[in-house]
Each structure stands twice: as C-alpha cells, then as structure tokens.
C-alpha cells in the first residue's frame, strides 16, 4: 500500500512523519492480528492440511500417529478421477448448483420487482419473506420432511385426497424426484437472499431514466427489459457468483433432507461419507481438492467473461 493520503499523516509538532508512519503500521498489525490468527488457524491451516493429506494414503490412525508425515502418493487422485461415483457426484453438484442459483435469483428478482412500489403492509411482508433464509436450516428441513412424508405429510394427503393422485409421492426417497425436491427447497431457502440484494439495488436506481422511457412511449415490459434489467446486471452477476460458490459447497441442506440418498449425493456429502463411512481421509481430501480446482477454474472463467462485460458497459 504505497498510496498515502494527504492529511492522514498530518505532521504533529515535534514528531517526525516517518515515526508516525511506523507507529501506524505497528498499530494496524496489532489490531488485525487476533482475527487473522483465528482465521488462519481455523481456515487456512486446515485447507493446507487437506491438500497435504490428499497426497497421502491416510486413515485416522495414521494421522493420529504420524501427523502430516506419511508417505506421499498420487493414488488418491487416481482413485478419485477413475471413480464413476465421483463423476456422478460432480454432475449432480453442477445440476444442483446451476438449478438453485438460477431458480433462487429468478424468484428473488420477481419478488423484488413485485415489492418495488409501495403498498399497504409492504415493510412487514418484506420482513416475513426473509424468514426461510434466517430460520435454522435444521428446523426448516425437518418441517419439509414431515410435510412431504408419504404416510403423514400434508402435501401427499392433499394430493391423494383432493387432487386425486393415485399414490403418495416419495418426494425425498426416490430418484429423480429427490434431487428436484432438494432444488425446490433451496430455491425456497435462498430466494430471500437475492430478493434482499435486488431490492436494495432497485431502490438505488434513479427514477429519471425510467420516466424518460415512459415519456418516449415504452411499455412496462420494454421499460423492464431495456432500462431496469441492464442496471441490475452488476448485482445479478455478483449474486450468481456468490450463490454458485455457496451451492457448490453446500452440505447441510442436502444432508438433512435426503442424507445423500436417491441420486442427491453432491460433492460435500460424498466427502462426508468418505470421512465418516469409510474413514478414508486421503480419499476425502483428494475429492475436496479436485472439487475446489473445478470451482476455481469455473470462477476464473466466469470472472473473465463478466470482466469483458464490465469493460463493454463502461
């Protein structure tokens, strides 16, 4: 950080500027150090450890006895890349991530547009709409499980008794319905997030451009497509990025709803099963490392593409 702003280091009588700058540097490092230490210990060290473990044929016993110093090998990566179950998990993860990202942002956008103009109870209703996002995931997945249960769930009762379904539907225990259900659940859980950010972006737009478009005879749909949507694109691009990363690494929602059964084994759940089921630490670490590489490459491509877009908009 070579940029030093005028005024910050306004000379104090009797104290040389270089000394002030040195003290500022020292104070800054002291104040940030505790946070950095916690994050480094809990996040960075484990990530490095994971990468190291992925090159070792390690079980819990080996890690407990030898720590990080086991024999190095590429076997885990060979196993991961030749395993059909891994590729299946990757495909499932991509399907799940894309569907929940597109779904939650689309619903969030529709919601933000519907809530744009004032109406009675707008503020309380807007607060209520964020409930799926803030409520504990354990509680909401449990409610969905009960509601969708074939024996005593309200959805199947309604379907068979009122809508005339022949059989109750196994929403969470039969492929391919299960993956669809998990996706719908996550759209339900995360659309409030997009709604929140797009709502904030909408209030920041200047009304003048839209009024000018209306004066020029634009219909409401043209106004949305040519005036409002382009202004929202930066926010949408950021949301896509954020949601994709989160969805790609999602564990709780899938694990709690289906336990990874019936064609819903996404990457995180597979890693969890490798760890707890077969206590294959090396294999689990290699799976996670390969997934992180895929995510990193996807992010890099996405940032390249949107960077070009940003340049053109300028």
């Amino acid at each position: 950080m070579a940029r030093v702003r005028e005024g910050r280091l306004r000379p104090v009588p009797g104290v040389p500027t270089s000394k002030l700058r040195g003290r500022e540097n020292r104070d800054g490092i002291t104040l940030v150090a505790p946070v950095v230490l916690v994050v480094a210990a809990i996040i960075v060290v484990p990530i490095v450890w994971t990468v190291v473990l992925s090159f070792q044929d390690a079980r819990y016993v080996d890690v407990a006895r030898n720590g990080l110093f086991n024999e190095l090998t590429l076997d885990n990566y060979a196993d991961v890349l030749t395993s059909p179950a891994f590729w299946q998990a990757l495909v499932t993860t991509v399907q799940y991530s894309v569907a929940t990202t597109v779904g939650s942002i689309t619903v969030g956008l529709v919601a933000a547009l519907a809530f744009r103009d004032r109406f009675r109870f707008r503020a309380p209703l807007r607060a209520v709409m964020l409930l799926p996002y803030v409520a504990p995931v354990v509680a909401t997945t449990f409610v969905w499980q009960v509601a969708l249960n074939p024996q005593y769930g309200v959805v199947n009762a309604f379907g068979t008794q009122v809508l005339g379904w022949e059989h109750p539907v196994n929403f969470l225990s039969a492929a391919p319905t299960a993956l669809g259900t998990v996706i719908v659940y996550d759209i339900w859980r995360y659309f409030p997030f997009a709604f929140l950010f797009l709502g904030a972006a909408l209030t920041g737009l200047s009304k003048e451009i839209e009024e000018a478009a209306v004066v020029d005879g634009a219909t409401p749909l043209q106004k949305f497509w040519f005036v409002v949507l382009p202004q929202l694109l930066p926010t949408i691009a950021l949301l896509v990025l954020f949601r994709m990363v989160m969805a790609f690494n999602e564990f709780d929602d899938v694990y709690l709803l289906t336990g990874g059964a019936a064609g819903t084994q996404v990457a995180s759940v597979r890693v969890f099963e490798q760890l707890t089921g077969s206590s294959d630490i090396g294999g689990a670490s290699a799976t996670a490392a390969v997934m992180a590489v895929f995510l990193g490459v996807a992010l890099a491509i996405y940032l390249r593409l949107t960077a070009r877009q940003r340049e053109e908009n300028r």
């Binding site: 996040i43 484990p46 990530i47 690494n249 992180a292 990193g296």
Partner: peptide
C-alpha cells in the same frame, strides 16, 4: 478463502 472450500473439509482437520 473461507468461502472457496466446503466447510466439511475445514471441519475435519479442525
């Protein structure tokens, strides 16, 4: 960096 890796993989070494 916190967000790039699944929590599960951070959780186990921790």
């Amino acid at each position: 960096a916190v967000y790039l890796f699944p929590t599960i993989i951070i959780a186990v070494p921790v």
